[in-house]
Amino acid sequence: MSFKIFDSFCGIGRWAKRDIITPSTVDEVVAQLDRFGISRALVYSNRIRQLSQADECNQTLVEMINNNERLIPAFSLALNPYEADNGVDSCFGLMRDAKARALWINSPFASKKLTHSLRRWQLGEWLDRCSKAKLPVLLYAEGLPPDNIDTLCREFPDLKVILTSVMYSGDSFLYPLLRAHPNLYVSLGHMYIPAGNPELFVRHHGYKRLIFGSGLPDFSPGGMITHVMYADISDTAKSAIFSDNLATLLNEVEL
């Protein structure tokens, strides 16, 4: 049986520290999607990893996507402390126009350089709006203290949070978080590959909270595909992980 694949963790465009063997342009990334049979991808601008101006990154993201229906925009948090609402209205307007379906609230590959708090005092307007719009937020977990994740979920219980880049050794903090916070989801990308998974995850948490992700362009999707395809789980579970779970989340968005 073949499955549609919807990638939750994919970057497009150039960034400063790119290695020459890593694809970067939209065409190169789309060619990778084709090669691996990935039908759609939730994409962010690679420039954001250098903590560049988020609003400009969002603008160039839309330009790069250029109405390609396979690429779904995930904007980056564009805080504006000089506006009373911290930049929320402006960004949500742009997201609505661009048909964005998710929001990164820290930068991929830069979580150790968190430049803002994830607490209500800093992000309250943003995350209340995301909760109301059912807009999922993406959170890059590698290097992020698990307490930050717990606090975020406690302060915003209706917020859908998709964790990316959870280490294969992260179950010690991930499982209690998943038990405590029903709106927490986990992307496979780029290294959530504990041995015995995804069977173990499905046994403990069901199959509706695990989401396919690759980490393109830095990380190739092949291993993630076989991680699911060789798993001893039902076709329903595989389909859910490969695409249905993410599609369901994104279809609920009401910007």
Binding site: R35, F36, Y168, M191, I193, P194, A195, G196, N197, S220, P221, G222, G223, M224, I225, T226, H227, M229, Y230, A231
Partner: peptide
């Protein structure tokens, strides 16, 4: 069993 053999073999298969 540090991590998934099913993931690791995919790196070569693909």
């Amino acid at each position: 069993a540090t991590f998934s053999m099913e993931h690791q073999i995919g790196k070569v298969l693909f």
